[in-house]
């Protein structure tokens, strides 16, 4: 490992003169060991930290009907979430995109129990953005929350142009989404019996993306089932699948 070599500078050596020694230390084992340690640390560490999504649920205590804040029918939009399952009992994954297939059925206003309106319940999907344009359910929610989103885009532009700081932007965006003078929708998210956790998170994400400050998570009611059945009848498709679990 460490060698001491006599220096071999040519020429004759004087008798009695001390030999000059060169010291070579071989660092190869040291490097080997370091590499091993690096590998260990690289495998054991998490570089990516998880994110969190904050959520506030109402209390479970029974609230009297009169005390409940009733949303205006024109502002309400209800979305029913459903996830398709494959034959193996696992959520179905789209072969093309590699993503789980979620279906969204939504209606605006109060549920139409007379089933007279055509296309009362409509179907959508989580598509995200295509060429920076909102698609699918996002486009519908954005349209509903237009007043807030217009101001939000202006704020975003100001932030991009460095006219306001990130903190100011956050504060103003929050004020904007809670601005009661604007027409804002109230979204009721109803995860169906087959909906996965991912479906719910996607729906909550849409709320955040579209700056919707008023939303709630509820379980589907009997009326919702009837609406889905009506949808099946009109479109000649089976959309209510047996509950997987």
């Amino acid at each position: 490992m460490a060698q001491i070599e006599p220096s071999d500078k040519g020429g004759k050596k004087k008798k009695g003169a001390q030999k000059k020694m060169q010291i070579h230390v071989d660092f190869t084992p040291m490097v080997d060991m370091n590499m091993l340690l690096i590998t260990f640390f690289m495998l054991c560490t998490t570089m990516i930290k998880s994110q969190t999504l904050q959520i506030v649920l109402p209390t479970n205590e029974e609230v009297k009907q009169e005390q409940q804040a009733q949303a205006k029918a024109s502002e309400a939009i209800t979305i029913i979430l459903d996830t398709e399952y494959g034959d193996n009992g696992k959520p179905l994954v789209d072969a093309e995109t590699g993503k789980t297939v979620h279906h969204i059925y939504y209606y605006e206003g109060v549920a139409d129990t007379t089933f007279q309106t055509t296309n009362f319940l409509r179907e959508q999907q989580f598509i995200g953005n295509v060429n920076r344009q909102a698609q699918g359910i996002r486009a519908i929610l954005r349209e509903k929350n237009k007043a807030v989103m217009e101001q939000y885009e202006i704020l975003k532009q100001q932030w991009r142009n460095k006219e306001i700081t990130k903190e100011q932007f956050d504060e103003l965006a929050k004020q904007n989404s809670n601005d009661s003078t604007k027409t804002r929708p109230v979204v009721v998210i109803k995860p169906g019996p087959n909906c996965t956790y991912e479906g719910l998170i996607c729906a909550l994400d849409e709320m955040q993306i579209n700056q919707i400050s008023r939303y709630s998570i509820e379980l589907p009611t009997h009326t919702d089932t009837l609406l889905l059945q009506e949808f099946e009848r009109r479109n000649g498709r089976t959309i209510i699948r047996p509950t997987v679990r």
């Binding site: 969190t52 979620h102 295509v130």
Partner: peptide, 19 residues
């Protein structure tokens, strides 16, 4: 009565629909 809490998620961009 612990009705404020957070859900752990991974990060994705706004453009993607789901993971």
């Amino acid at each position: 009565k612990l009705n404020k809490f957070s859900l752990m998620t991974a990060l994705k961009s706004e453009d993607e629909p789901t993971q």
